[in-house]
Design a binder for these strands. Structure first.
Lengths: 235, 235
DNA sequence: GCATATTTGTCCGTATGTATA
DNA sequence: CTATACATACGGACAAATATG
């Protein structure tokens, strides 16, 4: 009973109003806006992995029709953030150890390919450094949520080195799934904090023009992070 | 007026009945089955890139409700096979030269990473060889459609060497998009046929245990194929 | 194991807004 | 500029499946 009677009432409070910041130049359908809102709530942990998202409760809270809501559900299910069980409804995805392994396998391929390319202009490296700066500042000021997103942003930027729209989309999706992994962990703060210096070192090595070295460091980074997450999963 | 009044009538003939081969153990919703049918029609060229898919015409032909059809549209738009233009409807995606470049950039990363791994059991290599066998047979018997799918299957199998569910899904999607590229080409037959011997050579090199050599060959393969497609796009 | 209540799956009618001939 | 066609979005309805007591 994850979203029981009481929860249905509180959804009004949890989910902000749909029309909140509707831009004058809105170029998206209601279903897409609903999906965006729900995506945010999932990734920030207000809906936890395994939770059921009932059509009735959410359509009332967001004041949209069931049809529109179902279109949004389809989108998020396609992004692997929700799972659709026939005649049972949609649930926030619950990832297992094999998902973690798969996620890191893809990350290794994409991210290592990205840093391994030697032809990076200095301006791009500077952008990476700026992102690490922000994350370090967030850690220093104990803004743990910002630290987490900053770390994510770093790896998104790494993938961005490839300059491919499709790789960017893929990476965004992988990191969103990874957020679901973090949310079943005990303490995400210390996790992200420990890897901050390694991000810094990777950028420095890249700036020195040692792409191969940076790739090696990133590979070890991913190996260790995967191992730690799997350990947290108790496998 | 790609799907005008006359076309709406013929849709009944073009689109097979939805209930055709509904399995006893149907574990999928109507929306997913509709998406599957439309996907097939798009990839086999019965709907051509740029065509508009009108809700009215298709819902009548498939005898489903507008709501269900819209859910299916959302799925296919998310797969990049359709583009959703607000208040204008959905259209079969029309790819441009930059899409071809992007598609091949991702293919290079994925496929080259796959063949570059030296630890492939002999049984897996044999499966690759069998796929090339099938494609060669199709070419010899002038079954051009089968030749095309056979070539696709080969590259799907290459990506499959990584043993990652997410990579498999990604590759399936990339190849589906690539099919849209082929459909604006003049003569896909000769295109696929020319690359058949190179597939064969890659498998042979892999069987010899020379993963690095196979990766080099695949890289050249992709470079040439991309160049040829871009030339066909007139850029 | 059964009867009931709840929820999903699907369809329809309709009002409104948007694009286009 | 008007008229028409169409997409968007809503709400109601009902059958079917599932959850609950």
């Amino acid at each position: 009973m994850t979203t029981g009677d009481a929860a249905a009432d509180s959804l009004d409070a949890v989910l902000g109003d749909l029309e909140r910041d509707r831009p004058l130049l809105e170029r998206s359908s209601t279903a897409e806006r609903v999906a965006e809102i729900l995506r945010g709530h999932i990734m920030e942990g207000r809906f936890r992995p395994g939770d059921k998202l009932s059509e009735e409760g959410i359509k009332d809270a967001l004041r949209v029709s069931r049809n529109t809501l179902r279109e949004a559900f389809r989108l998020l299910a396609h992004e692997r953030l929700l799972v659709h069980e026939l005649n049972r409804g949609v649930f926030v995805r619950l990832l297992d150890a094999s998902d973690v392994v798969d996620l890191f396998a893809v990350r290794r391929i994409i991210e290592c390919a990205a840093v391994g390319r030697a032809d990076q202009p200095a301006e791009v490296i500077a952008r990476l450094a700026a992102i690490v700066d922000d994350a370090e500042r967030a850690a220093a000021e104990q803004r743990w949520a910002d630290l987490g997103t900053g770390n994510m942003l770093f790896h998104q930027a790494i993938a961005g080195l490839l300059g491919s729209r499709r790789v960017d989309d893929l990476m965004r999706q992988l990191l969103a799934e990874l957020r679901l992994v973090f949310q079943v962990m005990s303490d995400p703060r210390v996790f992200h904090e420990a890897y901050l210096p390694r991000n810094r070192a990777i950028v420095r090595t890249l700036a020195d023009g040692d792409a191969a070295g940076a790739e090696r460091m990133l590979h070890e980074y991913l190996r260790d992070a995967e191992r730690e997450l799997l350990h947290a999963y108790g496998s």
